[in-house]
Amino acid sequence: MSDHVNGAAEGTVANKVPVTITVNGRTHRADCEPRTTLADFLREDLGYTGVHLGCEHGVCGACTVQLDGSTARSCCMLAVQADGSEVTTVEGLAEDGQLHPLQEAFWNRHGLQCGFCTPGMLMTACELLADNPDPSAEEIREGISGNLCRCTGYQFIVESIQEAAPKMRPAT
């Protein structure tokens, strides 16, 4: 069996590929070109514009989403690859109108200025706290070092994550 999709037919607009993907609990089916990145697909085709593009080459982290339970740079994946996956974007963090503890903490501690890095920071911080529920400031800095922020100088982001940590720890 083979699963081949033709996207580069000479001189024509490339054929589109059907992709089924669950984003923040909702299943979407849409067609996209093979060359479309997951980031562009989420933003342009599905309207999840909370996914931001700061570099499109894997360095800034603004496009970070959760993919099947761990973080991924959505600019470094093709949408076709995410077929059948479950994705969480920043839009899926708050539930029932209640901000996620990290969102609340970023708000309290001024962990954002322009907000462009924020979606990626939040997704990364979620994973960081899941892996290490009580990180030191240095561990937080290391943990978010794959997410560039040009505005904050990071200090208030570190404090925000520290503030959220106890609220996200599983009760023991």
Binding site: T49, L93, H110, T118
Partner: peptide, 18 residues
């Protein structure tokens, strides 16, 4: 704390590429 933040924190902001 800032009035700007809830939109930015929840992915509801609108940047020019949006």
């Amino acid at each position: 704390r800032r009035q700007e933040d809830p939109r930015l924190l929840t992915g509801r902001a609108q940047f020019v590429d949006d």
